[in-house]
């Protein structure tokens, strides 16, 4: 059950996000003074001198490097957490995330294929999306054939499809040119926001927003889907189309984030659990709370990734280390109440 009132929790999560935003703008190997940040930020709204009020390297770092990276990081984090919370509800299983369900691996294969074929960014995204959706279709079909969409079969099918696409990714890497394509694939797969540019942020954010908005709006429906097909149907829900709409949105967000920043695991699994512990299981609150928490989490992890050591640590590695550790603590402390059957 909820620990604190919903309103207090949402305000606290928003404050956390605001602090994470400020921290990831000012901290890093090139420190930016809070006063300079304020001057630049006010400048965006036409107040004060803006860029002219700070040294050129300062505003260049903020506007051309940190802000795009921040936007992409926050949206990817929010999107992945939203996907996790949605999938856990739709599949009535708190162990599901975009990775378990095969979507990430599918999207990764699509992306790797695009890099291998030397295609551009648009093709990479399209291939990642198509392959992600294909993976999801395979999982749903397999679990359906194996009997009434049992949750165990679903997770097993997800593991199998994930393994299949991972194998295909390995195969593609094996054939890749070790001088240029191979490193590109390997670093892309490990996940990073280092490639963030203002242009990338501009075409990436609308994609995530377009897919996230329906999910956020249909969050009451996700509550009902989480009761199981038969009950949802008895409550008057058109189950299949509703579930497909949710799954397509999840695939869109996952593919967009994989296409942009590689596989960043664990966010979709851990953040919804964390959020559920704070605001309770009602998806009407859980979905926005997961998105806020996911954004903050991703910003802080990215901050660690780029400032802990001289070189940049791949994000996927850090989220796995941090996520797995946090999850262990959560599991240790959790009463099984929240996900017992």
């Amino acid at each position: 059950m909820t620990v604190v009132s919903t309103r207090v929790a949402m305000i606290a999560l928003s404050v956390l996000l605001a602090l994470s935003v400020v921290a990831s703008l000012s901290l890093g190997r090139y420190g930016i003074a809070l006063g300079d940040l304020k001057t630049i930020a006010l400048g965006w709204f036409g107040i004060g001198p803006g860029r002219a009020g700070v040294a050129e390297p300062v505003w260049r770092v903020v506007e051309l490097v940190r802000v795009p990276r921040l936007l992409i990081g926050a949206f990817v984090g929010a999107g992945l957490a939203l996907c996790g919370a949605t999938l856990q509800g739709v599949f009535r299983n708190p162990l599901v995330d975009p990775h378990v369900i095969g979507v990430s691996s599918g999207a990764a294969f699509g992306g790797v294929a695009a890099i291998l074929l030397g295609l551009g960014a648009v093709a990479l995204w399209s291939l990642a999306f198509t392959a992600g959706l294909g993976a999801l279709l395979l999982v749903v079909m397999m679990s359906r054939r194996a009997g009434r969409s049992s949750v165990l079969m679903l997770v097993l099918s997800g593991v199998v499809v994930s393994a299949l696409f991972s194998a295909l990714v390995s195969l593609a890497t094996y054939f890749a040119d070790p001088n240029d394509t191979l490193p590109a694939i390997v670093f892309w797969l490990m996940g990073s926001f280092a490639s963030a540019t203002p242009e990338r942020a501009l075409y990436m954010l609308p994609i995530i927003i377009v897919f996230a908005l329906p999910l956020l709006l249909m969050r009451f429906r996700i509550n009902i889907l989480s009761l199981g097909d038969e009950e949802a149907r008895a409550l008057g829900l058109n189950v299949e189309p509703t579930r497909w709409l949710a799954l397509c949105c999840v695939t869109g967000i996952t593919a967009a984030s994989v296409a942009n920043s590689g596989i960043i695991g664990w966010v979709g699994l851990v953040i919804p659990h964390f959020a559920r512990a704070i605001v309770g299981p009602d998806h009407r609150v859980l979905l926005p709370a997961s998105a806020l928490l996911g954004a903050s989490y991703m910003l802080l992890v990215d901050l660690m990734a780029r400032s802990l050591i001289a070189a940049e640590i791949p994000l996927g590695v850090l989220t796995a280390v941090v996520g797995a550790t946090v999850f262990m603590v959560l599991l240790h402390r959790a009463r099984s109440e929240d996900w017992q059957r």
Binding site: I224, S226, L235, P281, W339
Partner: peptide
């Protein structure tokens, strides 16, 4: 239910139609 919804949440779900 898999998730421990409150009684009010469950009854509100009856309003789905």
């Amino acid at each position: 239910p898999v998730f421990s919804y409150s009684v009010l949440d469950v009854v509100v779900m009856g309003r789905a139609r």
